[in-house]
Design a protein around this nucleic acid. Structure first.
Length: 552
RNA sequence: GGCCGGGUGCCAGAGUGGACAAAUGGAGCGGAUUGCAAAUCCGCUGCCGCAAGGCUUCGUGGGUUCGAAUCCCACCCCGGCCUCCA
C-alpha cells in the first residue's frame, strides 16, 4: 500500500508522488519569534516532523518509486530535505486594515522583555537589549530551538549542523526584493504585470494583482467572486482604494519610520507577510548544490532567473497550521507560480499541501484568558517529560482537533514507560507477531498518517508478551519518543531520584520510613509517605529496598 | 453568509457498506503480588442471560440497501479561514 495523504488543494486523499522518490523536498511554515512557542504551535510542527520521519522510513512506500528505488529505500530509507523558516520580521498586531496599522509585534515583545528585565525574571546570563528587535528575535529563536530539540523535532537537530535549513526571514530580504521586482516586471496573460506600485514616494506599497492569477482561491475555496461577496460589510479604508482588487495583497510596504526596515527600489520599508516563504523555500529546495552536505541557497540573482517548465511544483510538500490556508498559502501559491512557472495557472507551488488542525485544551480553545494556555517550557518546568509531551501532541490524527488534557498527558507518560520496558526486552526477535505488528504499523501510517493505528500496533506487540526490541526501535525512528532525553536520575543508598533534586530532608524521611517498616510500624511509615506527598513527592518501593522518588 | 476539517463507548481515540457491541491505551471492577500503596501480570467492563443466544448503540431526523458507525439528504454542535494567529 503506497503512501496516501489528504491534499488540502484537491480536498481528496491522494497518493503522494514527489518529483524524485528518493529525495523529497518539504517546506514547513515555522514559528514567529516574538514570544515562546506554545503547545498548539508544537502540535503542528510535530505533525510535520512525524510526516517527514515516516517518509524517511525504510517502511514507507511511494506510488511512483522504481524497483531499484524501492530496494534502496528498504535498505537505507529515503532522504527528505526539510526546511522551516524562522519569521523574525515583526508583523502588525492590528491587521484590520491590511497590516499597515497597529503596532509591530516585535515592539510589543520588546516592551514585555523590558518589563521582565526590570522584574528580574529573565534567566541569569541572558543579556538583551529590549529595544533591539534583532536581539528580541534571537532570544525567542534560541528558546524555540531548545524546546524543539527537546521534543525531538528532527529539523532542529539538523539545523545545528546546517543552519540554512532553518532560515531567518531577515536574512532573505534581498531575495524577497528580487522576487517582488520580478513580479513587477513580468507580464500576465492580460498584458499587465503581476504586481503594481501604488501610493506616492514616502508611502509606496507594492501589491500583487490577484486577478492576474486565475486559480487564486483554489486552495482555500475563497475564490475572488466569493471574497467580493463577503466583502460587503467591510470598511473600505483609504488604502483599499489604491488597490485594483480588494483582495490584492502586500508585497512591499514603504515605511521609513518602521522598527525593522530595509532599503528597496520602493524605498525603506518591509516585506509583505507571504513573500518570505516563496523565497526561502525556492532558494533552498531548488538549490543545485543541495546534495548530501550543507545547502547553498540560490542567490537573489539566481532566484530572479529560476524558471520551471509548465506548472511544475517548486517543492513536493508544504505544511502549516490550518489558519495558514488562507490567506498565507493562497498568496504563496499565487506569487510563487507567477514568479517561477512558465504556465503559472497550471501550477500549485507544492504538489501536496498538508495542514494539521488546531489543538484544543481540556475541550476548549486555548487562550491566555481561559488559563488553559501552555508553552512547552511551562510544562517542562512542571516536570513533564519531553517524551510524554511529544506523544500526547502526536497521538491524535493531524486532521482532527486534538484535545490536550492533563489526563492524556498522564496516559502518554505511562505508555512511554511501558514502551521503554518493552524496548529492552527481546523475547521474540523477528517472530511472527513482530512481522504482523510491523505490517500493521506501516499500513496505518501509509493511510494518511493514521497515528492511532500505528500506536495500536505497537501496543498490541508490547502487550502480546513477545516484544521485539528491533521493531520497537524501528517504529521509534518514526514516533521519535524513546530516543528523547530522560529525566535526570540520581541515587543515594536509599533513594533513586527521578527528575527531582535529591534532598537531605527527603533522604532522612526515607530512612525513617525504612526503619519504621523494619519494625513493622506501618502506621508511622504511611504517615511519612503522606508527609512526602505533602511536600510534592511521589514514592514507590522498588525491588531491593530502594525507593523511587518523583515529583507527584 | 461562503469555504473547509471534525462529532464513535466513562475518557482519549481507531474503524468509512457485511468478519462491529465496535481496534488500542487509560479509567473502573475482580484476582495474583504487596504490611498498605505504586508498578507488573491475568480476567471482566452497553443491556438481559450460567451459556448458547437475544436486545439497544456510533451528534439528530429522514432516505438508499438483503445489510449502514460507514453511502445520500436535511438539521444541530465543535474547530478553522474569509487579509494577526500552528
Amino acid at each position: 500500500m503506497p503512501m496516501r495523504l489528504y491534499n488540502t488543494l484537491t480536498r481528496r486523499l491522494e497518493e503522494f508522488r514527489p518529483a524524485d522518490a528518493t529525495r523529497i523536498t518539504f517546506y514547513s511554515c515555522g514559528p514567529t519569534v516574538y514570544d515562546d512557542a506554545h503547545i498548539g504551535n508544537f502540535r503542528s510542527f510535530l505533525a510535520a516532523d512525524l510526516l517527514r520521519r515516516w517518509l524517511e522510513s525504510p517502511l514507507c512506500e511511494l506510488a511512483n518509486e522504481t524497483p531499484e528505488q524501492r530496494r534502496h529505500r528498504e535498505q537505507h530509507g529515503r532522504r527528505v530535505v526539510h526546511v522551516m523558516n524562522i519569521t523574525d520580521v515583526g508583523h502588525m498586531t492590528d491587521d484590520a486594515e491590511g497590516g499597515e496599522h497597529g503596532e509591530d509585534r516585535m515592539a510589543v515583545a520588546g516592551r514585555r522583555l523590558a518589563e521582565a528585565k526590570k522584574a528580574g525574571t529573565i534567566p541569569a546570563g541572558v543579556e538583551i537589549n529590549p529595544n533591539d528587535p534583532y536581539q528580541i528575535a534571537r532570544f525567542y529563536e534560541t528558546r524555540f530551538r531548545e524546546d524543539a530539540r527537546r521534543l525531538g523535532l528532527k529539523l532542529a537537530l539538523e539545523a545545528d549542523r546546517d543552519p540554512t535549513l532553518m532560515p531567518r526571514a531577515t536574512q532573505s530580504v534581498a531575495g524577497m526584493i528580487a522576487l517582488v521586482d520580478r513580479l513587477l516586471r513580468t507580464r500576465a496573460a492580460d498584458g499587465e504585470p503581476y504586481a503594481y506600485v501604488a501610493g506616492t514616494p514616502g508611502a509606496r506599497v507594492v501589491y500583487f494583482r490577484v486577478q492576474s492569477f486565475g486559480p487564486y482561491g483554489r486552495l482555500s475555496g475563497n475564490t475572488l467572486d466569493r471574497l467580493r461577496e463577503g466583502e460587503g460589510g467591510r470598511v473600505v479604508a483609504e488604502h483599499q482604494q489604491q488597490k485594483k482588487h480588494p483582495a490584492d495583497f502586500l508585497l512591499w510596504k514603504e515605511d521609513p519610520r518602521h522598527i525593522m526596515k530595509w532599503e528597496s527600489p520602493w524605498g525603506w520599508g518591509y516585506p509583505g507577510w507571504h513573500i518570505e516563504c516563496s523565497v526561502m523555500s525556492a532558494a533552498r529546495l531548488r538549490a543545485r548544490s543541495a546534495g548530501e552536505g550543507s545547502i547553498v541557497p540560490l542567490t537573489p540573482e539566481e532566484l530572479a532567473r529560476l524558471t520551471l517548465p509548465d506548472g511544475e511544483p517548486v517543492i513536493d510538500l508544504h505544511s502549516g497550521g490550518e489558519d495558514n490556508i488562507f490567506p498565507h498559502h493562497e498568496c504563496e501559491i499565487a506569487q510563487s507560480c507567477c514568479a517561477f512557472n512558465e504556465r503559472p495557472h497550471e501550477g500549485s507551488y507544492a504538489g501536496m499541501w498538508f495542514h494539521p488542525r488546531f489543538l484544543l485544551v481540556e475541550g476548549e480553545k486555548m487562550s491566555k484568558s481561559k488559563g488553559n494556555f501552555f508553552t512547552a517550557r511551562d510544562l517542562f518546568a512542571k516536570g513533564i517529560e519531553p517524551a510524554a509531551l511529544r506523544l500526547e501532541l502526536i497521538k491524535t490524527h493531524y486532521r482532527s482537533n486534538a484535545n490536550f488534557t492533563m489526563q492524556g498527558l498522564a496516559d502518554a507518560q505511562r505508555t512511554v514507560e511501558r514502551w521503554r520496558r518493552a524496548a529492552v526486552e527481546d523475547t521474540a526477535r523477528g517472530g511472527p507477531r513482530a512481522a504482523e505488528a510491523r505490517a500493521a504499523f506501516a499500513d496505518a501510517l501509509h493511510d494518511d498518517l493514521n497515528i492511532a493505528g500505528a500506536i495500536a500496533a505497537i501496543n498490541s506487540l508490547v502487550g502480546s508478551g513477545e516484544p521485539d526490541a528491533g521493531l520497537i526501535a524501528q517504529a521509534d525512528t518514526v514516533l521519535g519518543v524513546l530516543a528523547l532525553e530522560r529525566p535526570q536520575a540520581s541515587q543515594t543508598s536509599i533513594g533513586v531520584f527521578i527528575g527531582v533534586e535529591h534532598d537531605a530532608r527527603v533522604v532522612a524521611l526515607l530512612e525513617a520510613r525504612r526503619d519504621a517498616r523494619a519494625a513493622k510500624d506501618f502506621k508511622r511509615s504511611d504517615q511519612i509517605r503522606d508527609e512526602l506527598a505533602g511536600m510534592g513527592y511521589a514514592i514507590k518501593d522498588m525491588a531491593g529496598g530502594k525507593v523511587e522518588v518523583r515529583r507527584a
